[in-house]
Design a binder for these strands. Structure first.
Lengths: 279, 279
DNA sequence: ATCACTTACGGGTGACGTAAAAATC
DNA sequence: GATTTTTACGTCACCCGTAAGTGAT
């Protein structure tokens, strides 16, 4: 069998055209390459190069070998990459969610329960997340409803409730609860990474505008120093510290202001994520 | 990059199940394999095996690697085979013919003109020979007619004439020529490897039977010691020595008893076989 | 003189074998 | 005790680099 290092050197020579250049590319010396190319010829027992005393070039057999070698090297790279990513997938849990709230609850328990595993999470649309679960990009996903698919395991998780967040000077500040309808038409400051909540508020308050903030820092400043209403949830209030910004949280009383989350994973992986699902 | 020898050893282990067995298969010692498998794990930086103190087995990453390794090794074998057969095709001329006669004339000149090249020849049906030319199995073929194909170069070659061969006691022995029709119904001894001539005589003498002999030796004995008629051609008479078997050759006068041969090769190879085509 | 390749020589890594130990059946 | 794997140690091969040589531009 021809060893890979010889094929690598041949591939470099085929790409560079001269041994000197190839040697530089490979961080080696020319004599080494000369010997390697001779070794290839010795192995096959017939010439792979035309020798012009000055210039070395591949003959037709050599060109053919170089083509194959190039493909073979690509295959080996691909092999290594696949094995590495397979191993990675065994030792990382990527969680996809349609909202950040449940991740705030789930991630700390995850890192505690699987200290040897890398935890990653993403907020995306429901469609993208379900696709990601089926393609094993995600190990567990969080949806606002159960999945009726024989390949999937669904389990009820926490629920999250949306609040109106207003300054104490706001007319609604004293209310014990409020409806979307009452707030429709007013303009809101909103965090951009809220996932499904954006769909909810846009649907329930079609006359309102929502000024989305990319950073938490910007959101915090704006809610502290402006009178514009904003949103919180019971989950975010419990998990985000330093929320003492002179505002009050008033629950929306509409049914759509409460979302019950469901953990979903492939049936074949239920054993693997047992502890997490039971949390 | 992972060297091939490591993948070979992994592949053997995956096939055998134990290091000892794999070592035997590879004509090596177990400790060598132990080290090689450790080397693979070191390279990847994560385990590829489950170690059971007694038994070593592939874990899921190892299985994946072994699968890829197996394919890669097959690719390398294929690469080597293709390069070798490419080189071979450059240094061998395989001539296909629909009859042995023209080969008797052509082969001696070939070996003289291309002493460094291996010459091979086959007699087969026209269909098989044309296919063989197109697939580069043959470099040059001999047909009984020109080819009207823009990819192919055709060139007239020698002609060959069929004789009746009978003992001096045969009623026709004194004839200067004879027709197929006159001989139809008589039974003949015939060499089996005559290619297109078999089609000719069967078509022209449908009432006759032909006793085909696989070996020249058998044919020679039968023609010498039996009275059954047989065939020769002007070409075979000129090229096969020791033909003094008390028989006389009487030319068939029918037009179909003469075949003009044509040399055909791919246009791209006319330069390569120039000398031969000009002979 | 420079460039490109080849040849010659020397060194250090590493691939392999032998020997022996550990562990399981 | 037999089998399988692992560890330890010595050796030889071979892969690479340095230095020198050849031929062409």
């Amino acid at each position: 069998m021809i060893e890979i290092y010889l094929l690598e050197q041949l591939d470099a020579f085929a790409a560079c055209g001269t041994l000197s250049e190839a040697a530089e590319k490979l961080h080696m010396t020319q004599p080494t390459l000369t010997r390697s190319m001779q070794k290839l010829e010795d192995y096959f027992g017939f010439p792979l190069f035309d020798r012009d005393k000055k210039r070395l070039s591949l003959n037709s057999s050599g060109k053919l070998l170089a083509e194959y070698a190039h493909k073979l090297l690509a295959s080996e790279k691909e092999m290594e990459h696949h094995v590495r990513s397979h191993h990675r997938s065994l030792h990382t849990l990527h969680i996809g969610s349609i909202a950040p709230g449940p991740l705030m609850v789930l991630l700390p328990t995850c890192t505690a329960q699987y200290p040897e595993i890398t935890i990653a999470s993403s907020v995306d649309t429901e469609k993208a997340i379900i696709q990601g679960l089926l393609s094993d990009e995600y190990g567990v996903i969080i949806l606002p409803h159960p999945m009726d698919d024989p390949r999937l395991h669904t389990q009820a998780y926490i629920s999250e409730h949306l609040n109106l967040s207003v300054s104490v000077m706001h007319p609604a500040a004293a209310r014990k609860s409020i409806t979307f309808r009452e707030m429709d038409g007013q303009n809101f400051i909103m965090f951009s990474q809220v996932g499904i909540w954006e769909d909810v508020v846009k649907a329930e308050m079609p006359a309102s505008s929502f000024y989305k903030q990319e950073s938490m820092e910007a959101l915090k400043n704006l809610t502290t120093y402006s009178e514009l209403p904003s949103f919180t949830t019971d989950v975010s209030v419990a998990h985000v510290s330093n929320w003492s910004n002179g505002r009050v949280n008033i629950p929306f009383s509409d049914p759509s202001a409460t979302i019950r989350y469901y953990l979903v994973c492939k049936k074949e992986n239920t054993a693997k994520w047992k502890q997490l699902l039971e949390s």
